[in-house]
Amino acid sequence: MNDMRIVERDVDTNEVKIAARDVQVFYGDNHAIKDVSVDIDDKTVTAFIGPSGCGKSTFLRCINRMNDTIDVCRVKGDIRIDSEDIYDPKVDPVQLRAKVGMVFQKPNPFPKSIYDNVAYGPRIHGLARSKADLDDIVEKSLRRGAIWDEVKDRLHAPGTGLSGGQQQRLCIARAVATEPEVLLMDEPCSALDPIATAQVEELIDELRKNYSVVIVTHSMQQAARVSQKTAFFHLGHLVEYGETGTIFTNPVDPRTESYITGRIG
């Protein structure tokens, strides 16, 4: 927990990438997210923490409109990426999701080869002009996913045959292959062992150079290790949001303090 004492963090002062205002989410009659407003910076890792069921994953899924695939889910309020309202009827959610990549809790490679897994997005969106171009994109993405050296000799082996940590890095490579601007990660390490977790965390720090990364995590150590900003959710409310160092050492809200000291959650 040593990291938590570091108050001074090198937060690059950035313009706001995602701006959410008064977001409400309902699952049928269940009011899952209440009045959440948050500004997420570009080229920053932002961590969402909070006890189970507090709505952090739900809010994450609002940012790329993955909640649209759930029938009973309704989203109200205003979420803007680069000042553009993503819930505007003019916006195609499919295009949006290409711009806002997502990595899931459990590694979910498609039952295809490693190459085809990474090439999936570029092929759908027509990002490659030629086969050589596609090869380049795949290699670059796998390098960004920090898995190139492990798989370069077996690109045509099935992606499901990799180990859990490798699968998750493959999924990250797959997500960055479509050149997203934002990368959403929903507990990306919860199914991984500590070594794979360390590799993925290192990778997340790398990714910060190019993307705005939002990560949901149950591990407060992980939030402290990888993020520059942290948001604490509780019972559907955004309780506190600020620089990670401040949140962990000097929280304003008593609920945040209770949570990070282990009294609730």
Partner: peptide, 21 residues
């Protein structure tokens, strides 16, 4: 469902997801 989520998360449409995944 994780397969579908993975494909939608990459910006695939429903029919692309069905055909390719």
């Amino acid at each position: 469902q994780a397969m579908r989520d993975g494909s939608y998360g990459l910006g695939a449409t429903q029919s692309e997801t069905i055909r390719q995944v």
